[in-house]
Write a protein that binds this DNA or RNA. Structure first.
Lengths: 337, 337
DNA sequence: TTGTAAGCGTTATCAA
DNA sequence: TTGATAACGCTTACAA
């Protein structure tokens, strides 16, 4: 193609290609005057470095991989939006890869991917970020990576997360502050990294308040509306019915609300319902849902930035916890009686 | 890195690198015996061609771009899943790029992207696929592309689509067959390519049945739950209330259902509600939603395959219409009276 | 501080 | 049908 190369830039600026390269890569030891000449030539020629050539010749490929599995639509989309935005700012591009569920397959898949296409680092979204064999592979190869919202093994590489445990803790305290003592909890999908953390926050808050939790009041869900319906049907038919139900995501909370209104229970007079995620629908159902706002897009941005900076400075792994927000709306209210 | 190169494969097979290249690229004029020797060496060395080198030296980059804007989470996720799967099968990889809303910016953005990273083709999802300046740019450059679910200009490049007009037509006929004559329609977001097509299907079916549609019964929406709520509040407070509401996506249909049940209307005895998309939640609300199932993932698969095949054969643009499915559930029933 | 020359791993050209 | 050899556009030594 007639695309402009580094040679033309060098010729126009009256310097060697190496100098152009130095300027473009922000290397030191370039006279400001030359730097300006080069930048001027770059702009007037509208020069864009060829990624393939860079990847082939150099140590960096300006390419990051975004790995996900089980694409919970909204979540992954938002992560990806954040990752793309951060990539663009840093002059990187994003390659997406869907990972097989089983962990051995995932490692093999990524190994093939990495030998075929040179990438500077990988962004691992849950639940891929907790895949032991995959992490081992990356550590062994020395491939940089960042984990988003890992469930455990927090010493394995840098990660960005929200404090799921504390968020669930705070939500539970919120319910307690409203006078609720009989609080039920709907767990998330067993495969998802956040599930145990949110449960732990709940049980910690109950214990700290000196409240007992009957095993009947901690039911399994799968992060789906349907599983929320199932959970609510069990909970609300209990002889000792809870006055508040904390579902560990919004979809399940909506399922709970649907069952409650079908049973003629008033929200929040007869039953308080809380969710987690602040998905868009949380604001339009009636009453609006009290929930936790996760900084999903920001987490991906932060992860990407961490990865890119780590590539430059090669410092030690760092972790970063982003703030969540407890969003109180109409679905929670004072306990009955 | 210690990654294995084409030279090692050539050495092991006792042929030249060019022969290995020929085998790998399925070029003709290679003796079967040599072909087998090469393939054996490839497998025993677990050789993976280096993408950057391929892109730099050759005409193909084994890289496809997936362009989207306004990430309606579920839709884009599903498209992407399909595109990735098809890419993997064809030995390609997928680079994702989020496109700026305004059309001039989009063209400039893609131009910069294409000069920086060599890609063999672009997959354009709605509404990017209807961006005139962008299409012009691609045509001018000769960059191959496929459009997914375009709204118009059907002669500009190959596309894959579902027959939105016919689907809306069929749904309207379904409602008519149940005895409904006073049928209202909730339009989608003005920016989305499907919006006019679905409206057209509705109006065509009404006209073909000899039914008049009061302008009051065709209200605007934005593909959101909230906009469905707004639309239903207008429609159901009309003096001459419709007996059926066809919302042009599921989110809006759910909004309609929420308002109806708040107003004490029985579904489907007092009001039939139909949606479009068959999103997951359509199956768990009560009653379950009658809707249209779009083959989203399949469309992206087909588009990707079309693109890859087009690259190989360089045949003329083709279009492909995938089948939709009318999914009848409990939210639609016989008209009252 | 700057420039020269040698690759990086593959495909394309062209001769055998 | 096969194989040398020269690109491809950039970065990395190393030299000046």
């Amino acid at each position: 193609m007639g695309s402009v190369t580094i040679n033309e830039v060098a010729a126009l600026a009256g310097v060697s290609t190496k100098t152009v390269s130095r300027v473009l890569n922000r290397e030191p030891h370039v006279r400001p005057e030359l730097r300006d000449r080069v930048m001027h030539a770059v702009r007037s020629l509208n020069y864009q470095p060829n990624m393939a050539a860079r990847a082939l010749a150099g140590s960096r490929a300006y390419l990051l991989g975004f790995c996900y599995d089980n694409p919970s639509p909204g979540y992954v989309s938002n992560l990806q939006v954040g990752a793309i935005a951060a990539c663009r700012e840093a002059g990187y591009h994003l390659l997406v890869e869907q990972i097989d569920g089983n962990s051995q397959g995932a490692a093999a898949q990524i190994e093939a991917l990495l030998t075929a296409v040179k990438m500077d680092g990988l962004i691992l979204s849950p639940p891929v970020c907790d895949n032991g064999p995959l992490l081992s592979l990356l550590e062994r190869r020395g491939t940089p990576f960042v984990r988003i919202a890992p469930a455990g093994q927090f010493n394995r590489g840098p990660y960005v997360s929200m404090d799921d445990r504390k968020a669930a803790y705070d939500m539970t305290r919120h319910l307690q502050a409203l006078g609720h003592r009989r609080i039920a909890f709907v767990r998330g999908h067993a495969d998802h990294s956040a599930t145990p953390l949110r449960l732990e926050g709940f049980t910690d808050a109950m214990r700290d308040a000196g409240l007992t939790v009957s095993p009947d009041w901690m039911v399994s869900g799968a992060f789906s509306f349907r599983s929320g319906v199932g959970a609510a049907e069990r909970l609300l038919n209990l002889p000792d019915r809870p006055t508040a139900i904390f579902a560990s995501n919004d979809d399940m909370a909506l399922g709970v609300m649907a069952v409650a209104s079908r049973m003629g229970l008033g929200l929040p007079e007869d039953l308080s319902v809380a969710g987690f995620d602040d998905s868009p629908i949380a604001q339009v159902v009636w009453p609006q849902l009290t929930t936790i706002r996760q900084p999903v897009e920001a987490m991906a941005r932060a992860a990407t930035t961490l990865l890119v900076e780590g590539l430059a400075k090669s410092g030690e792994p760092r972790a970063q916890l982003l703030d969540f927000e407890l969003v109180v709306r109409g679905s929670t209210g004072p306990a009955p009686q």
